[in-house]
């Protein structure tokens, strides 16, 4: 039996899908068997971020309607053999995959995988309920923007009604230079406001914007290091969180950045 973790945010565009994909990649780098489930029915993007969109034969809708078995719909990653993606139904009516069916699919995956990561849709309606109902832990993803933090706060309140074993916070797209200048909030500031333990801080990284995957980034890329720390935290090996502002503090760090 593994862990079933939903990645949610309330607000759209904060990077839930990117965080889900890269946390999955980072966990498989730690030799864990991971299934990524796209819970965003109709607005699926996890397949694109994982670069498996051309390999889809069956999706979660086919499993729900009995056209295939769960294992048949899973797509194995090219680089990481222990990483699988379950694509969502792109044309299916949202109501045709009821929460009960979604939960049973996630539970089936949970028998074979160390981690089942569920990419939750934006908003707090039916899709949110379905994705959250399948999980026993939650990671709330936000950016430092006020509107995203406000929505994250509402999601944290909602999650308290779902009897989650653990709820953690991941602050995505942090700009270290702005944090150092005091122009934007740092991840610990946001965690303190939301009263949720901070499990990860992910810096804004051009390489991630271009490739979407840490496996395509340089070994020393800050986003790659941040995701590996997040994976260690989730896996219970470490409680360190990446310091996005560390590269911008002090004269020598600034010099190092210039020559990196």
């Amino acid at each position: 039996m593994g862990k079933k973790i939903v990645l949610t945010s309330g607000k759209g565009g904060v990077g839930k899908t990117t965080v889900t994909a890269n946390l999955g990649i980072a966990l498989s780098m730690l030799s864990k068997k991971v299934a990524l489930v796209d819970g965003d029915i109709g607005l699926n993007n996890l397949d694109v971020v994982m670069m498996v969109e051309n390999k889809i034969v069956y999706d979660i809708g086919d499993i729900a309607e009995g056209r295939c078995r769960t294992k048949q719909a899973l797509i194995q990653d090219d680089c990481f053999p222990s990483l699988f993606t379950l694509p969502s139904a792109k044309t299916m009516d949202n109501s045709r995959i009821p929460p009960r069916v979604f939960v049973s699919i996630v539970n089936e995956l949970n028998q074979d995988f160390d981690y089942v990561l569920i990419d939750c849709p934006a908003g707090i309606d039916e899709g949110f309920h379905r994705a959250v109902a399948g999980a026993d832990e939650a990671l709330v993803v936000t950016t430092p923007h006020i509107s995203a933090v406000r929505d994250a706060d509402k999601v944290v309140s909602l999650l308290s009604t779902y009897c989650m074993k653990a709820v953690g916070l991941v602050v995505n797209r942090l700009k270290g230079n702005l944090v150092t200048e005091g122009a934007t909030m740092d991840a610990p500031d946001i965690a303190k406001l939301l009263r949720v333990p901070l499990k990860g801080a992910i810096p804004e990284d051009e390489e991630i914007n271009l490739s979407s995957q840490i496996s395509k980034c340089k070994d020393k890329s800050s986003a790659r290091l941040a995701y590996l720390l997040l994976a260690s935290y989730v896996d219970g090996k470490d409680t360190k969180v990446f310091d996005c502002a560390s590269d911008y503090r002090g004269f020598f760090k600034k010099l190092q950045r210039v020559f990196r």
Binding site: I146, V149, R150, G182, A183, T184, M185, D186, D189, L193
Partner: peptide, 10 residues
């Protein structure tokens, strides 16, 4: 500081 104002507003 801008950050403090943001925190206060939030």
């Amino acid at each position: 500081m801008l950050k403090n104002n943001t925190i206060l507003r939030l």
